[in-house]
Design a protein around this nucleic acid. Sequence first.
DNA 1: GTATAAAGTTAGATTAATCTAACTAAATAT
DNA 2: ATATTTAGTTAGATTAATCTAACTTTATAC
Lengths: 219, 219
Amino acid sequence: MNSLTEENYLKALFNIANESGEVNVTELSKNLDIKMPTVTSMMKKLARKQLVHYESYKPLRLTEKGKKEAGLIIRKHRLTEMFLVDKMKLGWEDVHDIAEQIEHIQSPVFFEKMDELLDYPKIDPHGSPIPDAKGKITWKEYNKLSDCSVGETVKLAAVIKTSSEFLKFLNAREMRLGLKIKIRSIEPFDKSIVVSYGKRMAEVLSNVACERLLVEREG
Amino acid sequence: MNSLTEENYLKALFNIANESGEVNVTELSKNLDIKMPTVTSMMKKLARKQLVHYESYKPLRLTEKGKKEAGLIIRKHRLTEMFLVDKMKLGWEDVHDIAEQIEHIQSPVFFEKMDELLDYPKIDPHGSPIPDAKGKITWKEYNKLSDCSVGETVKLAAVIKTSSEFLKFLNAREMRLGLKIKIRSIEPFDKSIVVSYGKRMAEVLSNVACERLLVEREG
DNA sequence: GTATAAAGTTAGATTAATCTAACTAAATAT
DNA sequence: ATATTTAGTTAGATTAATCTAACTTTATAC
């Protein structure tokens, strides 16, 4: 069994790797807000437990075992987020910190029950995929809204780098998953775009915002 | 803010005090399965934090502050148990260990939402009172089934010293809170009793079992 | 009312997770 | 190609929570 601390390292390794491929000590250290020497010593410990491949001065990589365990923690996190939003009626901007705690609960039956009550969801409230019961994760291929062209109509499929502030920003604009968005124009200067959706005819979105919105083309 | 460890000491102090009044180091040590010297040093720490009145060789007592904080943890525990049984359809014999973990979650909104979804319950699935939002607890006056007389009809109001085994024992006999029970006879030798309820006309219950069943007289 | 037993404390060691300070290796820049 | 910067490691200290062994205080038993 892994400690809560070890679980947090595994999860961070998994999440960072998913974004930027390899993981180095500096990055992990910043992500966890833990000093580098502490990270180094924890990597040696996780290497002893066969969870991480560790060689001095080399990038960090999870072993298959490590990936599986990390995937299972993320599964618990995302199932919990879905439960909090769907069954407990909390806002998608409020669930991260709670799920961060509940993901460490040791009780297979508790999470199986959640899964069942939610009817085996495939994504969390922000559109991120929920790893399966073996810890395996599969991302669908989405496009960033910032990479779409004028005239396209797309469906909001996921939101990434989801800070609470960003999610409140989306709330204020009535944007939620599944929303159909038409791209009206793109400003060449700063790549901000004008979109229309629902009752809103001309909403301006900065490039920073659009890079965090993943969409599916209508097909 | 108290650590998870500190919370466990506070809760144990509160629970033991509720049963047997005063608390001594030996008892607390056994209850938590932690050696006495460790308990002593934690008591000094909690005394520094104004949560416990501590004097060498004297019984342990929670301060008002300590009682309140312990009450709030127990509130979270019992709300959680109710939520797990009522909303998540887990058995009353399965919820203790999960609630033991969830009670440490730091998130007022999470527990407020639970409370709301449960419509502000006053008791947990075993009939124990849920402390109010200030940590204050009020026990109703119940009788042990073992103290009732032949011919009485009583209603099962609470179950105490609830091990998973005992709750399964009750499940096997279709006994649940609210059940009306008529006392048919009492065996003088071992104080076992014969009761009838529902479709069961003559169920034998040992004194050990009856001491854990709290009932209300029909009024 | 002293002897013994039980309960509680003190002292000092251990483990997990963290830190700072000092050092070394690798990458980068002129 | 060497100097400098950045990244990573080693060594040693710190804190919280635990332990064992030895000691002291309180309770109990004859």
